[in-house]
Design a protein around this nucleic acid. Structure first.
Lengths: 181, 181
DNA sequence: GGTAACATGTAAGCGGTTACATGATTAG
DNA sequence: CTAATCATGTAACCGCTTACATGTTACC
C-alpha cells in the first residue's frame, strides 16, 4: 500500500477510471477514442498499472465476469481521487514534447530538388488535413459531453483541430509565396 | 560498409552534417538551436551514430584537433547525400506524435474545482506564450538563412510559432466562453 | 464455422536518457 | 583561479512497444 511514485501513464489510467472507464480493456479503448493524439498507452502498461494502483490503495478492483469471460473492474478510492487531483494541481514543469518526423524532413528539405521539397510539404499538409477531419468527426460527441457539464475533452479536441489548421495555413502561405522555385 | 537500416536519429545526424555541422559536438549544439522543438538527440546517440554512418560509407571523418583538444569532423560522401535525399523523398508513414502532459491534464481537468481547472489552463497558455516568444526571438536568423536560399528552417520555425499561437487562441476563447463557472 | 471484438496478461527487446568519465581551452 | 565551453565517449538503466499466449462471446 505504500506508494511508489506514479508515472504519467499511471495517472492516465487513474484519470480514465475517474471518467468511467471500468476495465483495463475499456481504459485502453477509451484512450484510443479520446486522447490518442496526445497520449498513447498499451495493454502491457495498463494491466501492470492497474495492479499497482490497487496495491497502493488508489483503486479498488472487483471481479465482474461477463458469463465465463473474465473481467476485473475498478473504481477510485478516496485516496485515488485525491491523488489524481493533487497531480492535476501540481505545477510540475510540462515541457512541450513533439517528436515529428515530418517536421524534421521539412527542416532538411533544402537537400531536395524544389519539386521533391514541394511534394514533401504537400504530404505534410495532407496529413494535417486528414487529422483535422478525423478530429472534427468526433466533435459532436465531445459537444454532447460538454453540454453534460464536462467541457474539457472538447477543449483538447479543439486544441488539436486548431493546431492542424494552423499548420495547414502556414504550409499554404509558404507554397503561395513561391519558395518552390 | 554494409548498411544496417538507419534510424531517424541517424538521418538527423546525416542531415545536420549536410547543413554544415562538422563535429559531433556541433551537431548536438545545432539540434539544440534549431529543431529542438520537434526533435532532440543526446551525445550518447550522436557519437555512436557518427561511427556507424562512417562504417557504412555515408560519412567520411577526419581528425582535426584544435591544439591538443581532439576533434573529429565529418563530411557527406556521395552515398551519404544520396541516402539523405532518398529518405527525405521516401513516403513512409509519418504519424503525428505528440506526448503532452499539459494536454492530458487539461483533458482530465473536470476532476478539479473550476478555479483549479482555470489555473491549469492559464499555465498551459503561459507555456505556449513563452514558447512562441522564444521561437520569435530566433526568427531573424532563420530569415537571413531564408534569404540566402534555404527557406525550410524558417518554415518549420513558423509552423512552431503558428501551433502555439493557435493554442493560445483556443485557450483564450474557452476562458472567455465562461466555462469557469 | 470463421472473424471480430472482448478480456487479461507476460517476456523480450529496443530506443533513448541519465549519469559518469576524461581532458583541453577560453573568458572572466 | 575558476567556471564555462569545447569535445568524445561508455555503462547502466528505464519506459515503452511488440510479440506472444490464452480464452470467451457476439455476429455474420
Amino acid at each position: 500500500m505504500h506508494a511508489a511514485r506514479l508515472s504519467t501513464p499511471d495517472y492516465v489510467v487513474l484519470g480514465m477510471v475517474g471518467l468511467g472507464a471500468r476495465s483495463g480493456y475499456e481504459i485502453k479503448r477509451t484512450v484510443e477514442l479520446s486522447i490518442r493524439y496526445f497520449w498513447t498507452i498499451s495493454p502491457a502498461q495498463v494491466y501492470p498499472s492497474l495492479a499497482k494502483l490497487e496495491r497502493d490503495g488508489l483503486l479498488t478492483g472487483r471481479d465482474e465476469p461477463q458469463g465465463n469471460r473474465r473481467r476485473r473492474t475498478y473504481e477510485h478510492t478516496a485516496a485515488g481521487s485525491e491523488a489524481l487531483r493533487t497531480w492535476l494541481r501540481n505545477q510540475e514543469p510540462m515541457p512541450f514534447e513533439l517528436r515529428d518526423i515530418a517536421m524534421v524532413k521539412m527542416f532538411f528539405a533544402d537537400a531536395l530538388t524544389p519539386a521533391d521539397a514541394q511534394e514533401l510539404l504537400t504530404n505534410a499538409k495532407a496529413r494535417s488535413e486528414e487529422l483535422a477531419a478525423t478530429l472534427e468527426a468526433i466533435r459532436p460527441e465531445a459537444d454532447v459531453e460538454a453540454q453534460e457539464g464536462n467541457p474539457h475533452p472538447l477543449l483538447t479536441l479543439e486544441l488539436g483541430i486548431a493546431v492542424h489548421k494552423a499548420m495547414i495555413d502556414v504550409l499554404d502561405r509558404f507554397a503561395r509565396a513561391g519558395h518552390r522555385r
